[in-house]
């Protein structure tokens, strides 16, 4: 049962990341490959503040969100000068820069040694110490993220985001400052992604830069493309699919000496097949 709870915790964390990235990629049409950086800001803020400064989980989570949003504001300001492929490439560059900072700013992040001994969340004297208790907390926080995302996309703000995705010049003629809208959604998305980072740090109790690489950003991007862009539920389904699929493949019964490699092959083949036969994703409304 512990194993199921563990997968469920990972699912809630990744669902939060996928939902928040979908706001930027699916709804606004900005192909950002820098989400792991904001995930990392949340994780490192929580790890450093809890281990070195005696902060509790929730205050450190709030600080992580603020740091992530400030960073997103700066990064987003630079990104607003680019479009399409160039936007993706520059966002790609930012993820690499942030990863390098995590890796090399050893006085603060301890570099490749990582930060161990991160505490569990406490609320009014109650500690979320077991996996089941942590699952309860992460599920509640991710439901809040889900609710916030649904609120955003069903508002007039969400409708403008979709119009920006469809034709930015055309919507600007009707009086919308599209740069501001893009910056706002990028910043809000980064703030909410930091929640997932804080949860991850406290759950695993150890973080190092290897979790926040470009590969992680691509993994989150794959979740929303698989689940279906521009659909909050699709992002959740995509996260569920990519978290569970490798685990399900463990039970297929490949010979033990090639099991790991075969799982990777089947995993890749399934993803290719899905994209061939359902390019808009499982629940998608919009194709990139």
């Amino acid at each position: 049962m512990e194993y199921i709870y563990h997968l469920a915790v990972l699912f809630t964390i990744y669902a939060g990341l996928a939902i928040t990235l979908d706001l930027v990629v699916g709804y606004t049409g900005l192909l950002s490959v820098t989400h792991a950086a904001f995930y990392g800001f949340g994780a490192y803020a929580t790890a450093i503040l809890m281990t070195a400064h005696g902060f509790g989980f929730f205050p450190s989570l709030l600080v992580g969100m603020v740091i992530s949003m400030v960073a997103a504001l700066l990064i987003g300001f630079v990104l607003s000068r680019f479009k399409d492929d160039y936007y993706a490439l520059v966002s790609f560059g930012f993820n690499i820069i942030v990863f390098s900072v995590f890796l090399n700013w050893q006085d603060v992040t301890r570099g490749p040694l990582g930060i161990p001994g991160i505490g569990k969340p406490e609320l009014f004297g109650y500690t979320f110490s077991s996996t089941l208790q942590f699952l309860f907390l992460s599920a509640v926080l991710m439901l809040l993220v889900y609710g916030a995302a649904r609120f955003l996309v069903s508002s007039s703000f969400g409708r403008v985001l979709k119009a920006i995705r469809e034709d930015e010049k055309a919507i600007s003629v009707f009086g919308y400052n599209t740069k501001t809208y893009k910056l706002v959604v990028f910043t809000l998305s980064a703030g909410m992604a930091a929640i997932a980072g804080s949860l991850f740090a406290s759950y695993i109790t150890f973080i190092d830069p290897s979790t926040f690489t470009l590969n992680e950003s691509v993994f989150i991007l794959a979740m929303i493309i698989l689940g279906g862009l521009s659909n909050v539920r699709g992002a959740v389904i995509g996260a569920l699919f990519l978290i569970l699929l490798p685990e399900i493949l463990r039970f297929v019964g490949f010979p033990t000496d090639i099991a790991a490699q075969m799982r990777q092959v089947v995993y890749g083949a399934l993803l290719i097949g899905l994209m061939l036969y359902r390019p808009q994703g499982l629940m998608g409304e919009f194709k990139l």
Binding site: S156, R159, K162, D167, K169, A170, F174, G175, N177
Partner: peptide
């Protein structure tokens, strides 16, 4: 130049709501 993957109704609503 329409907002292609939005409904006809949303194509109108988006120009009427607040900026």
């Amino acid at each position: 130049r329409l907002f292609e993957q939005m409904s006809v109704l949303d194509n109108i609503l988006v120009v009427t709501t607040c900026r």
